[in-house]
Amino acid sequence: MAEQARTLAMGQDEARQDARGIVEAPFGRALVDLARSRPEIVGLTADLGKYTDILPFRDAFPDRFFNVGMAEQNLVAVAAGLARTGKIPYATTYGVFATRRAYDFIAIACAHSALDVKIIAGLPGLTTGYGGTHQAIEDLALMRMIPGLVVIDPCDATEIAQATAAIADHPGPVYMRLLRGNVPVVLDPAAYRFEIGKAKVLREGRDVGVVSTGLMTERALDAAAALAGRGLSVGVLHVSTLKPFDAEAVAGFAASVDRLVSAENHVAGGGLGSLVAECLFDRGIAKKLHRIGLPDRFIECGSVPHLQARFGLTSQRVAETIAGLV
């Protein structure tokens, strides 16, 4: 099990420097647990099973697993056909391929018919050093424009496990980013409860409020802890669901802090930062927003920690950015 569950490729699993626990292949494990009591759940991949943590499911339920070939359009539309016939398919590939190659299929074959397809998208944002062909840096912007599609960017192993189960109970299409391999535990499984469409205040603060999604929530929490030692009170609102967007929670959070920052593992335009700006402007909340995210260009290759530091996504760089605002 451990050997099969391990994600093998692309070298992004550099050794972590912190003391957080990890869970190996939280998505695959959660899917197996869920599928034991949910016979309608099936698994699919476009030949990237080894790299998207779904092999535990294949091993547990070989008759319910389909590799449709390196063919993302086919992956999404086969999933649509399964969903139309009473199954709940979880279809895995990389985010770049799901969104760039199969957009029409997600929009029309799945969302237009409100089908129960769950697309699980690996290598979100800047989590691979293999360069622009494999970095899904604009996927959230693309996916949030599709009517009726739920868009989720989980923070950690806890949230991936909970969200994997929660989306099975949501009748309709879902695009969920996948953190794969050895995934850190940031949120306490005993205390945290993922809910589709609900943002959660993970840390109270007065001076600066960080609205974050995905793995940037981990970085925001670390930065807030570091800055507390320097007398700065930093709050963190975790927005794991980009769509439907919890505008009420964001507006309330914004009103409670002096300065507002958004943080996402994604281009700074079109995703979380843009959603926060829309929300503030719609409500007439005049507050300067600093958006932490990737620039509007393709990102080079290199080691992931180095690239994340270069583009301001590490805990230390987030802390520096926040400190520079006040």
Partner: peptide
């Protein structure tokens, strides 16, 4: 170009 794949999904489920 959608229908044949949708048909495959339906055939697998059936």
């Amino acid at each position: 170009g959608h229908g044949l794949s949708i048909g495959i999904g339906r055939a697998l489920a059936l």
